[in-house]
Simulated assay, not measured.
Amino acid sequence: MNIGELFSKGGFVMWPLLLLSILSLTVVIERVLFWWKILTRERETAGRVLEAAQRDWRSAGDLARSAIDQPIGRFLNAGLELKDQEPDVVQLAMEASAQEELAAMHKGDKILEAVIAIAPLLGLLGTVLGLINSLGSIRLGDLGTTATENVTLGISEALITTATGLIIAILSLAFYRVFQGLIAQQAKIFQKAGNELELLYRKTWSSQDAGRIAKRVNSSAIAPDPSGTSAEAAEPS
């Protein structure tokens, strides 16, 4: 029995199951291509940006902007483009960017969740309708005779929809769990890269802040007093 025969014997419930399978397959293909593009480049991008940030923030920002088509590039760029802001502001910007990127990675989850929940129920509905149709033609006097052969065949055909619904749901669930695992992995990568970049920024900010304080102290030490003489000249000899 080929696929066409199975589809025709499954009844009208096979049409919504076909629609669900197309939706699930479309989401799976799109997500596989999305994750393939990310997983093959993100670690290299994060390593290059963080290495450059140890030497020069401008170079690190250029590298992050060149990888703006990747989630990790947009995430790191959110912090690097605020290089003149306070560390807390940079931290908030990176946290907001991480939440936005992780939310985008959940694209298609609702469709897969719907397919996982609805497909088995549609398959069961098709089987129940098939059983009702098959058993409705049985008379008590036909039990144990050859008249029940068609009923047995009808029952086996009714189970086609249940098997189809379960297959669609199982495959969708498998890919769904894989995608959720990849999202959890991305959250860890974002957290690790963000912590390293924030630490480097806080060190740079602290050294710059200390330089600004020292500059202000030196400027005030040589500033003239209101009498028109410098602080050193005002001291008694």
Score class of each variant (00 low, 15 high):
residue 113 E to V: 11
residue 143 L to M: 15
residue 213 I to A: 10
residue 191 Q to W: 00
residue 34 F to R: 08
residue 160 I to W: 02
residue 171 L to N: 00
residue 178 V to C: 01
residue 196 E to I: 10
residue 115 V to M: 00
residue 72 I to G: 07
residue 45 T to Y: 07
residue 11 G to F: 00
residue 163 A to T: 14
residue 8 S to H: 07
residue 94 M to P: 04
residue 43 R to S: 12
residue 54 Q to G: 15
residue 33 L to C: 07
residue 62 D to C: 05
residue 61 G to V: 04
residue 162 T to A: 15
residue 202 R to S: 11
residue 219 S to H: 09
residue 174 A to H: 06
residue 32 V to Y: 04
residue 135 L to N: 03
residue 100 E to M: 04
residue 139 R to K: 15
residue 146 T to P: 01
residue 207 S to D: 11
residue 13 V to T: 12
residue 204 T to I: 01
residue 21 S to Q: 02
residue 184 A to L: 12
residue 2 N to M: 06
residue 211 G to P: 02
residue 95 E to I: 14
residue 123 G to N: 08
residue 146 T to Y: 11
residue 83 K to P: 00
residue 54 Q to T: 14
residue 13 V to A: 09
residue 18 L to P: 02
residue 12 F to S: 13
residue 189 I to W: 05
residue 226 P to G: 02
residue 188 K to Q: 12
residue 218 N to H: 10
residue 51 E to A: 15
residue 190 F to E: 07
residue 164 T to P: 02
residue 82 L to G: 03
residue 194 G to K: 05
residue 35 W to P: 01
residue 179 F to P: 08
residue 84 D to H: 12
residue 25 L to C: 06
residue 234 A to H: 05
residue 78 A to I: 04
residue 39 L to I: 14
residue 169 A to K: 07
residue 139 R to T: 15
residue 139 R to Q: 13
residue 14 M to H: 04
residue 221 A to D: 12
residue 121 L to N: 14
residue 181 G to S: 09
residue 91 Q to G: 03
residue 121 L to P: 01
residue 203 K to S: 08
residue 50 L to G: 09
residue 28 V to W: 03
residue 20 L to K: 01
residue 187 A to T: 06
residue 233 A to K: 13
residue 218 N to F: 06
residue 64 A to E: 05
residue 212 R to Q: 13
residue 123 G to L: 09
residue 151 V to Q: 07
residue 127 T to S: 09
residue 78 A to G: 03
residue 148 T to S: 09
residue 45 T to S: 08
